[in-house]
Simulated assay, not measured.
Amino acid sequence: MELAGKVAIVTGGASGIGFATAKAFLEKGAKVVIGDYNEEGGQQAEQQLKESGADVTFVNVDVSKEESVEQMVAATVKRFGRVDIIVNNAGIGVLGVTHELTYEDYHKVIAVNQDGVFFGAKHAIINMLEHGDGGVIINTSSILGSVGEGGAFAYNASKGAVNLMTKSLALQYAEHKIRVNAVAPGYVETGMVSKEALGDFYDALVDKHPVGRLGQPEEIAHAIVFLVENEFVTGTTIMVDGGYTTQ
């Protein structure tokens, strides 16, 4: 798929992997809607990207609420006429999760990381079927959708579900020319995942990656662009993890 002229939604697009993905799409000529819970951050991201002449807009969204996601898709269609691509990237991270798991904690993670993917895919597919030209769904999974980690029960469960949701949706909608793939990052350098924020734990994370460093948001965005552009790839989850899951 050529990205020029296509309309893409990127949830969690105000920072990190989402922002890098929005920027990568815009550089290839796409029109982008940044969906994010952080209103201030989303507006700042929109303004920053618009300075380069990009066709981008921000929509405030809570992906754990179906009505909010439906409104985001409706706003996209109102602004740009259609949805060609959605990147279900918004999520709650694993860092900070404690070993004392409560149902409230579990449900919060599932609501964002798993339900958010369902809502995003559902409402994007409705529009893709309406315009009849197919489309692409990319889900942000994680290495922890394939391997376990102590203290991350809910996160593991949510990302494992994303991997299988990706396969199932790809099978169900292939005949409609809708491709569904996922990207599974290792630990990626962001504001929350940095030497300054994590101290010695940062070094422990680095040691888990055979390449000897953490990932960069742009590297994950590059994989997402590949999954969008390559029309012979569907139903797969690509590991972008510095070798983490090879061990």
Score class of each variant (00 low, 15 high):
E67T: 07
H131P: 00
A154I: 06
G242H: 03
M1R: 01
R79Q: 15
T237I: 10
A30Q: 06
V97H: 12
D115I: 04
Y155V: 06
A4F: 14
E229Y: 14
F232K: 02
F119M: 04
H131T: 01
E130G: 00
E2K: 09
F118C: 00
G53Y: 06
I9R: 07
A157S: 03
D241S: 02
K78M: 15
I85Y: 08
K78V: 15
R79I: 13
V112F: 10
H176L: 04
A4V: 10
Q172K: 15
Y202T: 04
H176Y: 12
T236R: 02
A22P: 09
V59Q: 13
E189R: 04
Q216K: 03
V211H: 01
T21V: 14
T166F: 15
Y106A: 04
Y202C: 04
T190A: 06
V32N: 08
V56Q: 06
G12P: 10
S141W: 13
K208C: 11
I125R: 01
G81A: 04
Y106W: 07
T190Q: 00
T237A: 05
E219C: 07
A204T: 15
S68H: 03
I126D: 06
V73A: 02
T245N: 01
G81N: 00
S141Y: 10
V69L: 06
L169M: 14
V63D: 07
A8E: 08
K108N: 08
Q71I: 15
F201R: 12
G199N: 10
G116F: 09
V188A: 03
S68E: 04
A75D: 15
I126V: 08
A74L: 14
V97M: 12
I137D: 07
I178N: 02
V33L: 13
S52E: 12
E27R: 13
T236F: 11
H123L: 11
K208F: 13
V193D: 08
M192A: 11
V94S: 14
I138W: 07
G134T: 02
H123I: 04
E219Y: 09
S146K: 04
N127V: 00
F226R: 02
T21E: 14
Q47F: 14
V162P: 08
N230V: 03
H99N: 14
A121C: 09
G41V: 10
V240T: 02
E51C: 05
K208R: 11
G12Y: 07
N88I: 12
A54G: 01
F153Q: 01
Y202H: 09
V112I: 05
G186Y: 01
K78H: 15
E40F: 15
N230L: 06
V117I: 06
N230D: 11
E46D: 12
M72L: 14
K159F: 11
I220P: 05
S142G: 06
K208N: 09
V97Y: 10
H131R: 00
E66T: 02
E40G: 13
A24M: 14
G81F: 07
D84Q: 02
R213A: 11
V59P: 11
N60A: 15
F232E: 01
T246A: 03
E218D: 12
D55V: 05
R213Y: 10
A124V: 01
V180H: 04
